[in-house]
Design a protein around this nucleic acid. Sequence first.
DNA 1: CTTGACCTTCCCATGATTGGAAGGACTACA
DNA 2: TGTAGTCCTTCCAATCATGGGAAGGTCAAG
Lengths: 148, 148
Amino acid sequence: MNIGHASAASGVSAKMIRYYESIGLIPKTVRTEAGYRVYSEQDVHTLRFIRRARDLGFSVEQIADLVSLWRDRERASKDVKTIALGHVSVLERKIRELQEMASTLKHLAENCSGDSRPHCPIIEELANEDSPPVLAKADARFGALGKA
Amino acid sequence: MNIGHASAASGVSAKMIRYYESIGLIPKTVRTEAGYRVYSEQDVHTLRFIRRARDLGFSVEQIADLVSLWRDRERASKDVKTIALGHVSVLERKIRELQEMASTLKHLAENCSGDSRPHCPIIEELANEDSPPVLAKADARFGALGKA
DNA sequence: CTTGACCTTCCCATGATTGGAAGGACTACA
DNA sequence: TGTAGTCCTTCCAATCATGGGAAGGTCAAG
């Protein structure tokens, strides 16, 4: 099976499959004489595992740990649970940060008439000389949501 | 006032001030003969405005819009409200995605004994041949939380 | 006049992902 | 056999906001 087929079968883009190989998340594959990568059903299985972990928001680094724990049939379930719960707490912190942002903004927007007049509490809050941080301490790096 | 002072007064790092200038979010400053950037109180005020908007998770692109609306004393509050509410809906979608991830993981972890035995429903779910996506469609790009 | 703290520009790295270019390989069809 | 079209390969670049650091100029205090 070539990379395009493995991609379709696993839901991981060919680009990402090559990337995962380059960073060592998955081992280098067998190649045909022409240099084409060849994948087995087991490889596709691994790729699906990786995709599901990505869907759950695990980082590539965490996924590497999960994959090796997956391969180790003797590992303790505690080790897996530790990673999962650690990730849950990161997710929950992130959720709280975003909820704070959203509720602050909603509160401001509720007090903004939203008509053609210039008065606007949203802008006024952002411009407020006296209120240092708008929120306590929401790590701005996790607030940015890209150009979605 | 030089850039270090402006940074301390606004809470925006000197690195970011230069970056914001380079991308046109803030105008080029006056320079001393030696080439040092010089900032006024008004500039610091603008930087604080920007930092607060960042704290609320606005993208630089959105901040550019907010800054120009801020400067325009005749603008309609509707324009500001539209940006804010658009951002709120993005935040809320993101929150729902993360909540789905967290609840799926918590559910799996609750059923994982977390002891030294190998049985682990978390790994088993990730490895499950039959369940295509773990979650409906959580954009993986927003699931990754960096190496926090 | 030296020391240290500041400033300047420039380049690089992050994380996961996508895009594209240039070129080789394979398949199907005439 | 030729050729068109689709696949594959590698390499390079961009995203977004931010930090790190190097090399070198400037400034203020001692």
